[in-house]
Design a protein around this nucleic acid. Structure first.
Length: 746
RNA sequence: GGGGCGGUAGCCAAAUGGUGAAGGCGUCCGCCUUAUACGCGGAAGAUAUGCAGGUUCAAGCCCUGCCCGCCCUACCA
């Protein structure tokens, strides 16, 4: 609605063209109940304002809004008689539309030109902008709306009514006074209570504040403001992770207003202060304060609400301001953020063996405004060192659904970790947390959880295979020394070493764990288990593990490395797969001096897994590349129906004479080739082809029914009867002999 | 309105401004063999890293604008 405020100061002082005329301004408001508190009208100092005359009455409104005002206030016939900047309106005076009160013209840059009239009715008791404007002009801040939301000290028309009930009577009042120029219904957003969803009102009330710009004395006698001290700590004494956290919290501290620490609630930590009943001045007495601390230590904060608190008042105490001798207990409580912000004191100062600062504060990104913020302020303000309570602050992003939306009850898109734990296991929840980059917003959904559960099975099965093949393996008795290890086993040990270095650093104190890069740990361990172990090493090893003599050096070599891999891997995953790792730990071979629990053990040391050997890794990279090519060729033959499994194949590699290096490498590893490729026979030849050429043919000779390898019928390993078996290769015969079987007499 | 973060194939996720944008999962096809196929192999999948410009010999990476999502905050007289 639009309300006329008549000018009472000299119109000619605003603009000569207005001299002698009957001048007013028009304000626009959606809250008629605030009009009894109206003390000023605000204009934008830079906006152009026009004076519109109609029927002997001049109205001052913003030029940009003049058209809308004409329409809404039936001023279509008005003619402009003057134009000037809003700054001209400062210190002009107006008559309140229905109270005996002078209204002051003020300027404010928050006045906008998109709605209203460009002249904003200002009630310092009912809005932050208005309050600060009122303070600038020394206006009264008294609020005449009581705690029940009822208007007080007003006209009979609305006295005692709640603010929303008062709207209509006030509108009637305006009509009777002839100052209501226009009225219409509009839809606009209005703040509501987050809890009961009812509209809220703004009211100026007395509160306790911590002044952010209070000077604090430095050791050299100079002073730094509280705000600046906090900023210095942010910049110089804290590591922020992610790094942008520093910018984010610094911006907040740099621009935040004084901290309002009082709340009008029943439950909470009392602001333990006695107030003079006459003038509200707090009684500031060190001895009294100490008594309060003693009382609280003895009986808890609840004691504040008993007469025991009153008895702490010193005899003959009097108010420093008015000399009064009557006092009452303050009933406001502290902002709960003050409580949580003081946890550094409650924990680090109170607990024996601990002291501030904490190594790490970790929370969601919303806590830059919450816990991080208030912890910093309380610690800088009253901590013994007046310094940050933390050395490092880490932050997690938000959890969103698959569409990137925040989870909410109304959308029904929430993923309940407890539900996931119940259905899929708590390990899956941990695995999920580890699998995503928590520094950014993360996505959670049933699908993702299902996938992780499948991934978990892979990890678990990998451990199961490792354990299964270590049955009966006693490291002290059976382990093979490093120089005796087979080449493949030595390589896998080196791969494990690489993994360990990445995951926890060479010394077990760095790496991705040291950087809280858990998702990289997950990715690397996952890939290691799938690619290096499951589909390569473990697969290739089956022949050796299952067909060689149990105590043969070849099998013991494999077991030695399986054991060392398992020992390393279980420690690497322990922080994530808490229970699975412990389960594995208990099944691993017991060794003298080993920790009772994996969670009491340390991360593996890279050096214990051998020295870094770039040359070795390079060789195997080439070997594995060759392996990939052979596997592709084998697949082609399999698709063509020429072979089934790889053991039915013989592979001939033809290498160009130019490929000397590779030829030498393959020659060097010739004895391992058939194992690496999982084939029965491998042959190397020099060919004319430009690149490595892979020729696949059926394996020659006869299949050994024990190890399924094929052997040439005329070779030394040829298949022949042995004991109860009719087709056993020489290698298997040796193994059987070693196992105590005797050769059958033909 | 202000402060901050993010957008890479269905999913997770790499890539000091520099080869055809890793890898894993999932998908599809094939193989019962030696972790019960709880396994193994192969293939396809981003017409180019939200969109549009710009800087550069060179851009997923730097700059500008826009769109979308998220956190915090102020407020709508």
């Amino acid at each position: 609605m639009y309300v006329r405020y008549d000018l009472t100061s000299d119109p000619g002082a605003i603009d000569p063209a207005l001299a002698g005329k009957k001048v007013a301004t028009l304000i626009w408001t959606t809250t008629p109940w605030t009009l009894p508190a109206s003390l000023a009208v605000a204009f934008h100092p830079e906006f152009e304002y026009v004076a519109l005359e109609q029927g002997g009455q001049v109205y001052i409104v913003a030029e940009a809004l003049a058209a809308a005002v004409r329409e809404n206030c039936k001023l279509e016939a008005a003619v402009p008689v003057a134009k000037f900047k809003g700054a001209r309106m400062e210190r002009a005076t107006f008559r309140h539309p229905f109270l005996e009160r002078s209204i002051l013209g003020v300027v404010a840059d928050y006045v906008t030109a998109d709605t209203g009239t460009g002249a904003v009715h200002t009630a310092p008791a009912h809005g932050a902008d208005d309050f600060y404007t009122g303070a600038r002009y020394g206006l009264d801040q008294t609020c005449n709306v009581d705690n029940a939301g009822r208007l007080r000290n007003g006209l009979p028309e609305y006295e005692g009514k709640t603010v929303f009930q008062a709207n209509e009577p006030i509108i009637e009042l305006l009509k009777r006074r002839g100052v209501l120029l226009g009225r219409s219904d509009i839809y606009h957003s209005y703040p509501h209570c987050w809890r009961c969803h009812k509209p809220v009102i703004f009211r100026a009330t007395e509160q306790w504040f911590i002044a952010i710009d209070t000077p604090m004395t430095n050791s050299d006698g100079t002073a730094t403001t509280f705000r600046q001290r906090a900023l210095d700590e942010i910049r110089n004494s804290v590591k922020w992770d992610p790094a942008w956290g520093e910018e984010r919290i610094a911006n907040m501290i740099a621009t935040r207003p004084d901290w309002c620490i009082s709340r009008q609630r029943v439950w909470g930590v009392p602001i333990a202060v006695f107030l003079c009943t006459k003038c509200h001045q707090p009684l500031n007495d060190c001895v009294l304060n100490e008594r309060v601390v003693e009382l609280f230590a003895r009986e808890g904060a609840e004691a504040w609400h008993t007469e025991a608190a009153d008895s702490l008042l010193p005899k003959g105490a009097h108010c420093a301001r008015c000399g009064g001798s009557e006092f009452r207990r303050e009933t406001d409580i502290l902002d709960v953020w003050f409580d949580s912000g003081a946890s550094w004191s409650a924990v680090l100062e109170a607990e024996p063996g601990l002291e501030p600062p904490a190594d790490l504060y970790f929370e969601g990104g919303d806590q830059y405004r919450g816990w991080f913020h208030t912890s910093l302020l309380t610690s800088v303000g009253v901590g013994a060192q007046h310094a940050s309570p933390f050395r490092m602050v880490g932050t997690a992003g938000w959890t969103l659904d698959e569409q990137g939306r925040a989870m909410s009850k109304s959308l029904g898109n929430g993923v309940d970790p407890v539900d996931i734990a119940d259905r899929l296991g708590a390990e899956i929840v941990r695995l999920w947390v580890a699998s995503v980059d928590f520094r950014e917003d993360v996505v959670s959904s049933e699908n993702i959880m299902q996938r992780l559960a499948e991934g978990y099975r892979k990890l678990r099965n990998t451990f199961r295979f490792l354990l299964g093949n270590l049955a009966g393996f006693e490291p002290a008795r059976d382990a093979v020394s490093d120089p005796e290890l087979l080449p493949l086993d030595r390589y896998m040990l080196a791969r494990t070493r690489e993994l360990v270095e990445k995951v926890c650093g060479a010394d077990g104190h760095g790496g991705w764990y040291g950087e809280f890069q858990f998702h990289r740990v997950y990715q690397a361990v996952n890939e290691f288990c799938i690619v290096d172990l499951s589909s390569f090493y473990l697969d290739v090893l089956k022949d050796r593990l299952y067909t060689f003599a149990p105590r043969s050096v070849e099998r013991r070599s494999a077991q030695t490395v399986l054991w060392r891999i398992a020992e390393a891997l279980v420690r690497l995953v322990a922080p994530i797969l808490t229970f699975t790792a412990e389960e594995v730990w208990q099944y691993l071979p017991k060794v003298e001096g080993r920790a009772e629990s994996v969670h009491l053990a340390e991360f593996p040391k890279a050096e214990a897994l051998g020295k870094a050997d770039a040359g070795l890794m390079e060789e195997w990279k080439k070997l594995l590349a060759t392996r990939d090519e052979v596997l592709k060729a084998l697949e082609t033959e399999r698709k063509a129906g020429k072979i089934g499994k790889a053991l039915e194949a013989k592979v001939t590699l033809r290498l160009d004479a130019e490929e000397l290096a590779l030829r030498e490498l393959l020659d060097k590893y010739q004895p391992s080739l058939k194992e690496l490729l999982n084939i029965s026979q491998a042959e190397l030849r020099t060919g004319a082809a430009a690149e490595v050429e892979c020729e696949i043919g059926p394996a020659e000779g006869t299949k050994c029914n024990r190890c399924w390898n094929y052997y040439a019928d005329d070779g030394p390993q040829r298949v022949r009867p042995f004991g109860p078996w009719d087709t056993v290769c020489g290698r298997c015969a040796d193994a059987l002999r070693a196992m105590g079987y005797s050769e059958a007499v033909q």
